[in-house]
Design a protein around this nucleic acid. Sequence first.
DNA 1: AGGCGCTTGTGAACGGGTGCACAAATCGCG
DNA 2: CGCGATTTGTGCACCCGTTCACAAGCGCCT
Lengths: 260, 260
Amino acid sequence: MSQQRNGSTSGSNGSGPNGRAAVVGVSLNGDAGVELKAGVSESFFPDLPEATVARLPEYLRALHHLADTGHDTVSSEGLANAAGVNSAKLRKDLSHLGSYGTRGVGYDISPLIGQIEYILGLTSRRAVALVGVGNLGHALAGYAGFTSRGFRIAALFDADPSRVGERINGLVVKHINEIAVIVKAESISIAVLATPASAAQSVADQLINAGVTSILNFAPCVLSVPDRVDVRKVDLAIELQILSFHEHRKSARINGGLRG
Amino acid sequence: MSQQRNGSTSGSNGSGPNGRAAVVGVSLNGDAGVELKAGVSESFFPDLPEATVARLPEYLRALHHLADTGHDTVSSEGLANAAGVNSAKLRKDLSHLGSYGTRGVGYDISPLIGQIEYILGLTSRRAVALVGVGNLGHALAGYAGFTSRGFRIAALFDADPSRVGERINGLVVKHINEIAVIVKAESISIAVLATPASAAQSVADQLINAGVTSILNFAPCVLSVPDRVDVRKVDLAIELQILSFHEHRKSARINGGLRG
DNA sequence: AGGCGCTTGTGAACGGGTGCACAAATCGCG
DNA sequence: CGCGATTTGTGCACCCGTTCACAAGCGCCT
């Protein structure tokens, strides 16, 4: 309990370095979930294993790609290949969403996209605040992937007065002491933290105070947050260091002539 | 086998979305490792669990921070807090490196830093190539964390002729058709991919051809690579979508009045 | 020198996730 | 209408990782 999850750099498999504090998937508490199904497919909320949740976005991306290239259905094998997992795992993951496949045929792409987007809460475009418009933050503010995949950057903040007022992608950078007002006014629940590590904890506290309950943290530090707040961490240097380990291991096996 | 690892956004505990292809930690093959210990501490290569490897960089960061703030030793409890894990896990992780702690006292920070840096292959600054100097790539090229934590950006590439020749942080952007020559000349084994998804596979192939054996992939797609090549993936939209799921779940529990 | 408190290192139980292998179901064709 | 090919859905066994709980070791104080 009380671990932070690493972010998309991998996490090598779910496996990723952990930070401290916010629990993300740990306390999913034990609902059966399935019997909550109400209508056809649009209003139940199953209890998904955290590992499955982490793979759904990849399935979604692969499905969109298939749909764009003119496909109507896919087999588990085909979708698994496109998403980089094995087919048994994919079938088990999808089975948790309810049944969207037809034996002997495969999965209907379009309703499956709808179901995954519903589960992920992407039916309406979510507002996101971005704090820290430095080197990295500036790039994130202009990243098209955010807007094309279900999100809308609704506010930009920075602590540096010389940056406040700058216009990026049609948005004006505000000072961080306006976080409380703006976040509340726009009902923002997700924030991206791209500040220096030294400022991250303080900014996180302000965001949480203002009502933010999910944080994507790019600062190389551990955030301390209440249990109800989810934190995912992306640390580029950590990803490289993990790769470095494997490089080191490879060369050790060659130079040292170790068995392997 | 043949999964890609997600990167630092975290992987929920190891758990993170998987891509396809490169095995990173799977085929560590079964060396005992320990009996290889030769000198005092500088020349053996233990077989570490992949989950442990993914946490070592976080320990390293925390240790540097402690050292900078004047500490000489830490208890497992103290270091665990600083790294955001629990102390039992930390002790087990460190026990795999050999014994650097003293019962009743704690761990000596300085030698422990040395040992972790050695294991991670950070004793000499590793050269990294960065491909794709667009929005995100440009920011990565200027990211101080790379240089301050064991890496050196040795080359920049882009496919866009109008970008070739541009100077970023003292480095001139080269055209991607120079990848083979430059990567070989500088013996670069790690590359960061910040191209559009449509170009990623082709660029990856060129990099691998030129001798690169580790790739940090920021493009939202699955790379297909030989087994000997390690791939870690960072997808910012996926991280947000995972957070979105938890937001959706939280609000479903409130609005729907579900037990939980 | 001896004992006490503190902290590491680890054996063992536990839990989640993965992958195999097969039964169940659907389609198409003769 | 029935059969065979195909593909989903899942029970089961295995494995990795986590966590607990405690024994072993170290330093300090008397």
